[in-house]
């Protein structure tokens, strides 16, 4: 019994240590977020501690700030457009890459995820140089195209992973029952793919909405997206307004994936 107890005791300490480290890691990860959220309700004129009272004034100010609202709208539009285009193209690419045999498929498979691996700064400069060479001005179109390029690999990866899991026999069964390829896709493949598509849409939206590096390179003169706007404001001062803005950004970019996860779970839950 003696050695056994000793082992248990050290086991308990081991677990306690793991717990403590875990808690510390979580604090380290979430402290900045928490600080931003808390300070956004600070009544003080300055963007840091101490708290001098609780107030919603910074949110009010934010909603009257024309520049911020414009940047917000720009970002939303770009994110929506990116999400829509990426999803359609990405789903089609994923289907081609998993369901069809063609020459150079292996190459395509590798190339399509390349933009996700290359540092954004390099992509940013690269696309810009290309535009310069083609003698094109920086435009909204360029910005959206850039975001599409950045986000597309993620759609392909997410949808492909799911598609591999959808057994081919479902599609074969549908075909044998008389549904042509389009109807088979509509009635069988698409519904089974839906959780992945929802996840992909939200992921892409978030990637686009959050992006700053590439946007800095690609935005047309005078246009700000939400992240570039924050950066611009930070150059002037750390105003409490930024904390409010940051909090809103957090709500959107954290809330959306959570929402997507929930939808995906409901969609696949229907079939369990």
């Amino acid at each position: 019994m003696q050695p056994r107890q000793a082992e248990d005791a050290s086991g308990v300490w081991g677990w306690r240590a793991v717990k403590i480290v875990t808690i510390l890691v979580y604090i380290f990860m979430f402290a900045p977020i928490l600080v931003t959220v808390i300070l956004s309700f600070n009544a003080s004129m300055f963007g840091g501690f101490p708290m001098t009272g609780v107030s919603l004034q910074w949110y009010g100010k934010l909603f009257q700030n024309e520049a911020v609202l414009r940047a917000f709208k720009t970002s939303i539009w770009i994110a929506l457009l990116t999400a829509a285009v990426c999803t359609v193209i990405g789903v089609m690419a994923a289907i081609a890459l998993t369901r069809h045999e063609f020459r150079g498929k292996q190459w395509m498979n590798t190339l399509v995820i390349l933009p996700a691996l290359v540092p954004e700064t390099i992509l940013g400069v690269g696309l810009l140089l290309l535009m310069k060479w083609a003698n094109q001005p920086r435009s909204y179109l360029l910005l959206v195209l850039g975001h599409i390029m950045l986000a597309l690999p993620f759609v392909v990866l997410v949808v492909q992973a799911r598609l591999i899991g959808i057994k081919r026999v479902y599609e074969e069964a549908a075909l044998s029952l008389g549904a042509n390829r389009f109807n088979t896709f509509r009635e069988v493949t698409l519904p089974l793919l839906m959780p992945a598509i929802v996840a992909a849409v939200l992921l892409v939206f978030t990637i686009s909405f959050d992006n700053i590096t590439a946007s800095l390179f690609w935005r047309p003169p005078g246009v700000e997206t939400m992240p570039t706007q924050i950066l611009a404001m930070l150059k002037i001062s750390i105003s409490p307004e930024i904390n409010a803005l940051g909090t809103l950004m957090i709500v959107i970019t954290v809330g959306l994936p959570l929402l997507g996860g929930a939808i995906a779970r409901i969609l696949s839950g229907n079939r369990q």
Binding site: V169, E172, A173, S176, L177, G178, R181, T184
Partner: peptide
């Protein structure tokens, strides 16, 4: 899809 053939698979393949 124009052949009118009934197929049953090992793992059922029900939608």
């Amino acid at each position: 899809y124009k052949r009118n053939i009934g197929l049953v698979f090992q793992n059922y393949a029900l939608f």
